[in-house]
Design a protein around this nucleic acid. Structure first.
Lengths: 144, 144
DNA sequence: ATAGTTATTGTATATTATATCACTATTAAA
DNA sequence: TTTAATAGTGATATAATATACAATAACTAT
């Protein structure tokens, strides 16, 4: 086995198999939040036998490992631009994802005071946030 | 038509038809977040011909009018305990719904500093929040 | 090599949500 | 009192999202 395989690429200790890597690239390269079946369509260009579970499994892995965010308000997925900042330098930091219910645009914002307040609230509750993501829906500036 | 009909009840200017009222009562009376098809099952005890659109229409109305919250993290609905406080006395107030991904428990919390911070953030962005609800997922005290 | 374990794949199906269209009730105007 | 506009309902079908479960492959420690 001296020939390097294409099926696995190590990125920061992660096990990016072919389908995980392909899903990551698809979401990362998209201009907008991607839904699972949008991703599936694209994925099938590369991996013809891909099925819904292929996508969901890859998404689970990528979300768990903080490479993607799941946006519950749209059942969609976006690339996490701030992987290192969110989880390496400031693991206590909370981001807010604002979703426009009109145009679907998603904006990610953080604010250190809010992170502190959230840290207080979760500490007081004994709640372990798994994502450090807060979601807020409404209408964005352009649409109002 | 001198006999009062049972089909409509006025509550704070709302038009609570029979099915809306029934759905409201079902969610209000439940001990846990209710999913649409859970609600449908219960609703069919009262309105046998109820179908999925019956439930979704009622839910749309009740969420729009702030009697229920939709919890995106679970595709579920909860009664808003603080209808007056949230939307009448303090329309600027943000609540955070914490969802435990292990047991499904939902807790609603507010914090005036966080509300102020969120108000600042949304104002700066020109974002009009439609729900004043932030969602946060993680593991609750009991489950950790 | 082989049993025990973990990871991945395949097939089918479950769950959640909406589109459409015909019909009914209510309200407000002409 | 008709008419028109608006809002709500009922029924059917189907779209969109997601997971359960069984089977197979890959790894690993004896």
């Amino acid at each position: 086995m001296s020939v390097a395989t294409e099926t696995k690429v190590s990125l920061e200790g992660l096990n990016l198999t072919a389908s995980r890597r392909a899903v990551l690239d698809i979401v990362k390269g998209a201009k907008k939040p991607m839904k699972a079946y949008d991703i599936l369509s694209d994925l099938q260009q590369v991996i013809p036998h891909a099925k819904p579970p292929t996508v969901y499994r890859a998404l689970d892995y990528l979300v768990t490992n903080h490479l993607l965010h799941r946006v519950n308000a749209q059942n969609a997925f976006v690339y996490c631009q701030h992987h290192e900042k969110c989880f390496h330098d400031h693991p206590e930091r909370f981001n807010v994802i604002f979703t426009c219910i009109t145009c679907g645009a998603i904006t990610e914002q953080a604010h250190h005071v809010m992170s502190n307040v959230m840290a207080e609230m979760t500490k007081a509750m004994g709640f372990m946030s798994d994502s450090h993501i807060l979601e807020c829906t409404g209408v964005c500036k352009e649409c109002s």
